Amino acid sequence: MAALRRFLARRPWAVQALTAGALMGAGDVIAQQLVEQRGLRGHHSQRTLKMMAIGFCFVGPVVGGWYRILDRLIPGATKAVAVKKMVLDQGAFAPCFLGCFLAITGAVNGLSVEQNWAKIQQLCRAVWGGVVAGLLPPLMASTFPRTTWTLCSPTTVLAVVQCVAIVWNCYLSWKANRL
C-alpha cells in the first residue's frame, strides 16, 4: 500500500485518470439505475466499463493536461485570473472536449461516421445549452488552482470537479448512450 501511495504521489496524472475513470463509471451507474431505472438485472455493465475506460483514457488525461496548459497560459493568483481561465475553458476548451467526448462515445458504441456526426450535432445543442451554461462556469472559476479563491490544490482539482460534476457525468452518460 505504501508503494502505491508513493507511485501516485509522484504521478498526479495517474490519480487524475483513475479518479475520472471511477467517477465516469459512477455517473453511468447512476444514469442507468436512477434516471433510466434499469434495475440490477437490466444494468448494462459493458456500458459502465466503456464509460470508465473513456474517463480513464480520455477525460482524466485531457482535462488534467488542459489545467496545466491553462496555468501556463494565464499565470497568476487573482480573481481576474480565475475568470479569464473560466472564459477560456468554457469558451474554447469545453465545446471541443464535448464534441470529442461524444465522438469517442459514439465510436465505442459502434456508430457509423454518419450516425456519429448526426448524434454529435444533436447532442451538442442539447447538452451545451442548459447544463453547461449554468453549472460549469461557476464551478470552474472556483476550482482553478493557484488562484486566491481556489477550493483545491492543482493535484486534486480534477477530483473535486469530477465529484461535484457527478450529476453532469450521469447526464452525459445518459445522453451519450441513448441510441
Rank of each mutant, 00 (worst) to 15 (best):
A20C: 08
A80V: 11
G130E: 10
A103I: 10
T78A: 05
A159M: 15
L179T: 08
V108G: 00
C96R: 03
W149Y: 10
M140S: 06
L151H: 12
A94I: 00
K84R: 15
N109A: 12
A77D: 15
R68G: 01
A2G: 00
F97I: 00
A22P: 03
W13E: 02
T143F: 11
P61N: 10
I54W: 01
A26W: 06
W128C: 10
Q33D: 03
N109T: 06
N177G: 08
K175C: 06
L123G: 05
P95T: 04
T147D: 00
D28Q: 14
L70Q: 06
F7M: 10
D28P: 14
E114I: 07
V29P: 01
P137Y: 12
G99L: 09
W128K: 06
K119Y: 05
G39Y: 14
A126S: 13
A2E: 14
L102V: 08
A107D: 10
V59Q: 07
C170K: 00
R146H: 12
G129C: 11
R38Y: 04
V81H: 06
A92D: 05
W117M: 01
A22D: 07
M86H: 13
L49M: 07
K79G: 15
M140V: 05
M140D: 04
F56E: 11
A82P: 05
A118G: 00
R178C: 08
N116R: 15
A9C: 03
P61Y: 09
V35Y: 14
F58E: 01
